[in-house]
Design a protein around this nucleic acid. Structure first.
Lengths: 87, 87
DNA sequence: ATGACATGCAAGTGCTGACTTGCCTATGAT
DNA sequence: ATCATAGGCAAGTCAGCACTTGCATGTCAT
């Protein structure tokens, strides 16, 4: 999971999905290019999503020829639990 | 900061420093080898600490020929704020 | 059934990152 | 002064990662 967070493009994908859930791959690509100023290709984004999915941060479901993506931020709790940010 | 967390050795260093603050480089090396089963050399650990320091997760202070290391987990709060783990 | 659309797979390339190696500096003890 | 201790610097190696390229698969509309 930590390696999944290490790439800025993947963090932007998380940002996008937190703001707007259940996007298709094409939606993600266009919105990432428009709003986040990314230049990544569709394949690059797809591979990033594979990493995020392997990390448990994104879940996918297939409907027809579309693939929808959803965030799951729960794995991130492990960070706060491992290194408490004593306030 | 995210790249700093991407390496398991660096995460082990944070674990060590959370458990026991203000260690010298040699202390860290020996304790990491003993308790965490790491095999990294002193130079490797030193370079990891440079990364952690650049990420603001570790602060160092020099006293004589010793260099002490302290954790600062506050940068980690940005993670929870960026992607809220809605409970 | 044919074409356009949405996505998947796999090999190849280039660059970054983790680690080593060898030597150097500085502090403190004897 | 000398020597061991604690740490620093820099170049080089090697594997992994992000990205590309090219083609393949599957789905829907007409």
């Amino acid at each position: 999971m930590f390696k999944a967070l290490a790439d800025p493009t993947r963090r932007a994908i998380l940002d996008e999905l937190v703001e707007r859930d259940s996007q298709t791959l094409f939606e993600l690509c266009t919105r990432l290019t428009m709003k986040h100023g990314l230049t990544s290709s569709r394949q690059a984004i797809s591979q990033h999503i594979d990493v995020l999915e392997a990390a448990g941060l994104v879940t996918t479901r297939r409907e027809g020829r579309f693939k929808f993506h959803d965030v799951d931020t729960r794995p991130l709790r492990a960070i706060a639990e491992r290194w408490p940010t004593d306030e």
